[in-house]
Simulated assay, not measured.
Amino acid sequence: MQITVVEGDITEQEVDAVVNAANRAMRGGGGVDGAIHRVGGPEVLADCVRRFPDGLATGDAGWTEAGNLPARWVVHVVGPDRNAGETDRSQLVSCYVRALEVADELGVRSIAFPLVGAGVYGWAAAESVAAALEGIAAAEARGSGVEEVRIVAFGHPAYDVVRRAVGGAGAQSRSTR
């Protein structure tokens, strides 16, 4: 499994699936969630309502169609809200593990992740990327069919954190700057 680090916008990634850092209700919101719903269009929300009438639990993942996004699917994950006292790191790791399990169910070969939890949910970028690497290692150990995991950092400071953390794993990196 190849890990690619990109500085950019998750909604512009031309991959099989993009990951949405959603809230439990899965009805849109701010940050990555708002961007996914805004660019994906009303089809994403309609699919969320249809597939997940009660939302998703923290640490879990589910998929919808991607609407107007360049990807085919959106894999939605619900990270723990550190600012609300949800500090169980295993739930953050579970977001990455579950997203890759869902990706395998869909036959995804390329997937793009944001830094789950690193926005309004209060996890540091370094904590999120460490959880990502742990989830990727678990997927590799179980024989995932995903060929490329792209970690998309929004902004150069986050990109530097991810590039440093992933760099030792032989990842390819590119910046949009």
Rank of each mutant, 00 (worst) to 15 (best):
M26L: 15
G28T: 13
G29Q: 04
V32Q: 11
V32D: 10
G34M: 07
H37D: 04
V39I: 15
V39Q: 12
G40D: 03
G40Q: 03
L45K: 04
L45M: 12
A46K: 14
A46Q: 14
V49Y: 01
R50I: 00
R50A: 15
R51I: 01
P53R: 04
L56S: 09
D60Y: 00
D60M: 03
A61W: 06
G62H: 12
T64Y: 07
E65G: 15
A66W: 13
A66G: 15
G67E: 07
G67R: 11
L69V: 09
A71Q: 12
H76R: 03
V78E: 09
D81H: 15
N83E: 12
G85W: 05
G85H: 05
R89A: 14
R89F: 07
Q91P: 00
V93Y: 04
V93F: 05
S94K: 09
C95M: 04
E101L: 09
V102M: 01
A103K: 01
D104E: 08
L106V: 13
L106R: 07
G107W: 02
V108T: 13
S110N: 06
F113D: 14
F113K: 12
G117F: 04
A118L: 08
G119K: 11
V120A: 14
V120W: 00
Y121F: 15
G122E: 10
A125Q: 01
A125M: 04
A125Y: 04
E127M: 00
A131T: 12
A131L: 06
A132W: 08
A132H: 08
E134W: 01
A137C: 00
A137P: 00
A137I: 00
A139S: 14
A141T: 03
A141N: 07
A141F: 06
R142P: 02
S144F: 00
E147R: 15
E148Q: 13
V152L: 08
A153I: 03
F154A: 10
G155Q: 08
G155K: 10
